[in-house]
């Protein structure tokens, strides 16, 4: 018997528009976006600077409410225009993992403590939290650096700790904003492959904003944003 929950998209956006300012200063950052990302699907978001990628990502991440349109996560309506349908902060905590261009690790905490913070925010503490954090660092191949401060880690290792932190609470949606921009080509590709493997094994929908054209073959689908409008979408077979 198939589980109907498995067919529910990780994220679904209908007619999402974001307008900044008003009157003469009115700017439409994204316009009428319809986007669906399935569970376990790994999608790249491409577009030139100023095309609205960050606005789209922050709308999906429930950081910046849209002016109009509807956002659903796991089939649950979470935003209807600027109106919050659920407790947004709790939803971010339980359902969304963020990864950035810079690792954004807390500099005075060790690698494992950075992961433990995410778990503590969601209410997991003590031995179960430590077990989960250790498991995540092991699975990402950096358990030997668990007690190092971020300053003692390489760029790739820092990014892996950031990924472990994003995965700490088993998010159904993983959002990454140019996660390989600070990494060299080979390391960047490894991180992209890691996203693909994570998406496919954990079942989380993964959306990666990237400029890196060299690793597009890693993704199930690429979508292009231009002047705030989705221009085209390619399945993996036609994207490269």
């Amino acid at each position: 018997m198939t589980d109907p929950a498995n067919n529910t998209p990780a994220i679904e956006m209908q007619g999402v528009t974001k307008v900044y300012g008003s009157g003469n200063t009115r700017v439409i950052a994204i316009k009428d976006i319809d986007l669906t990302i399935g569970k376990g699907e790994v999608v790249a978001l491409l577009g030139p600077s100023g095309s609205g990628k960050s606005t789209l990502l922050s709308a999906i991440g429930l950081i910046n409410p849209p002016t109009a349109g509807r956002i659903m996560i796991n089939g649950t309506p979470v935003m209807d225009g600027p109106n919050e349908m659920v407790n947004i902060r709790r939803y971010r905590r339980e359902h969304i993992g963020f990864i950035f261009q810079k690792s954004n690790l807390i500099p005075f905490l060790t690698a494992i403590e950075n992961v433990l913070v995410a778990l503590a925010i969601a209410g997991t503490t003590g031995r179960p939290a430590k077990k989960r954090a250790t498991h995540l660092l092991e699975s990402l191949g950096i358990s030997d650096r668990a007690n190092n401060l971020p300053s003692a880690l390489s760029g790739g290792q820092q990014q892996r700790v950031a990924i472990a932190r994003a995965l700490a609470n088993n998010p159904s949606l993983l959002l990454a904003d140019e996660p390989t921009a600070a990494l060299d080509g080979k390391l960047g590709r490894q991180v992209m492959e890691l996203f693909r493997d994570l998406g496919h094994t954990s079942g989380a929908g993964v959306l990666v904003v990237t400029h890196d054209q060299r690793a597009l073959d890693v993704f199930d689908r690429t979508i292009h944003l231009e002047d705030g409008v989705l221009t085209n979408q390619h399945e993996a077979s036609t994207a490269h």
């Binding site: 950081i63 902060r89 939803y91 971010r92 954004n104 925010i121 969601a122």
Partner: peptide, 16 residues
């Protein structure tokens, strides 16, 4: 402030 914003992004409550 950056670390606090990060904690909020991860869903930390104001009480935390």
């Amino acid at each position: 402030i950056h670390d606090i914003a990060l904690l909020k992004l991860m869903g930390a409550k104001n009480s935390m």
